[in-house]
């Protein structure tokens, strides 16, 4: 009872800050847009029908899923060694290293993108180095395209993966790795046969979080895609703030939200089945 009462403030904030806006958004998605762009109050599924039957929507969905799945996988793969390093560091360094791993979260997405331009741009550090060494004559196209978004998204998801993995691997008993060593396993075999399988749930959780964040990512695709990368989030932005078609923006947002909710529930069910108790 006390526990429920203590949850009340959070529940109220969630209701006011999340549930209510989502309900409003849902309402707007049933409105109609006239051919000159004005929004009319209505209860119609026209907008949904138009979105679902448009091939471009499915291209968007495919782009979004492949992009975020790839970036999430890369982020997890890169976060794992970082996390293992933190785990093997002396205890008094662990906190500092963990903080460094998640420090990018403290920098605004926009500022990070500006940094990426300086590094990845046609006249950026990497291309200056490559052309300076005579390795390439034409600059490598590392930004304002899908490559740029992949790099930027992977980097922006890594801190979240680190957070999840640090928490997940802290419960991994280091005696298990010692036991493997005493049984004759080299470091690499210990990693692949013991550490990695035991880290699998944490890796899956990190991937799921990164994937969801990647699907809803807007700033990175927008600022690093050079207008060449179309994902659901950038399309919602264009619909809401360029063409001012709110019903379409709302409907697409609701479809995205619905898909993510279904995906999370499915994952929960699958994970629950895998690990009883």
């Amino acid at each position: 009872m006390i526990g429920l009462l203590l949850c009340l403030p959070a529940a109220l904030i969630l209701a006011a800050g999340f549930v209510w806006p989502v309900l409003l958004l849902g309402r707007i998605s049933f409105n109609r847009t006239t051919d000159m762009g004005a929004m009319e109050e209505a209860w119609t599924l026209e907008t949904y029908a138009k979105i679902v039957t448009d091939d471009f929507t499915w291209d968007l969905a495919w782009n979004t899923i492949t992009l975020s799945a790839g970036a999430a996988a890369a982020a997890v793969a890169l976060a794992l060694p970082v996390t293992l390093l933190i785990r093997s560091a002396p205890p008094r360094w662990r906190g500092v290293l963990a903080l460094m791993a998640v420090a990018p979260l403290l920098v605004s997405g926009t500022a990070r993108v500006v940094g990426w331009m300086a590094i990845l741009g046609d006249q950026g550090m990497i291309n200056a180095l490559l052309t300076g060494l005579g390795l390439t004559s034409q600059p490598l196209r590392l930004i304002n395209n899908l490559t740029g978004v992949r790099i930027g998204l992977t980097e922006s998801l890594m801190p979240y993966c680190c957070l999840v993995l640090i928490a997940g691997l802290s419960r991994l008993d280091s005696r298990l790795e010692e036991a493997a060593a005493t049984l004759g396993a080299t470091r690499s075999r210990t990693f692949f046969r013991v550490t990695l399988p035991l880290a699998a749930p944490a890796l899956a959780a990190a991937f799921a979080l990164a994937f969801v964040l990647g699907v809803s990512a807007f700033i990175t695709p927008r600022l690093m895609g050079g207008g060449r990368v179309f994902v659901v989030a950038t399309e919602i932005f264009d619909l809401a703030l360029e063409t001012v078609d709110w019903p379409a923006a709302a409907a697409l947002a609701m479809l995205l939200l619905g898909t993510l909710v279904v995906a999370m529930v499915l994952r929960g069910v699958l994970a629950g089945r895998e690990a009883p108790r």
Partner: peptide, 20 residues
Amino acid sequence: LPPHRRNMGVVFQSYALFPH
């Protein structure tokens, strides 16, 4: 010698069985 080359059997206090 590193532990994996010593050929010793160790039983840990917590057993350290591989849960997977």
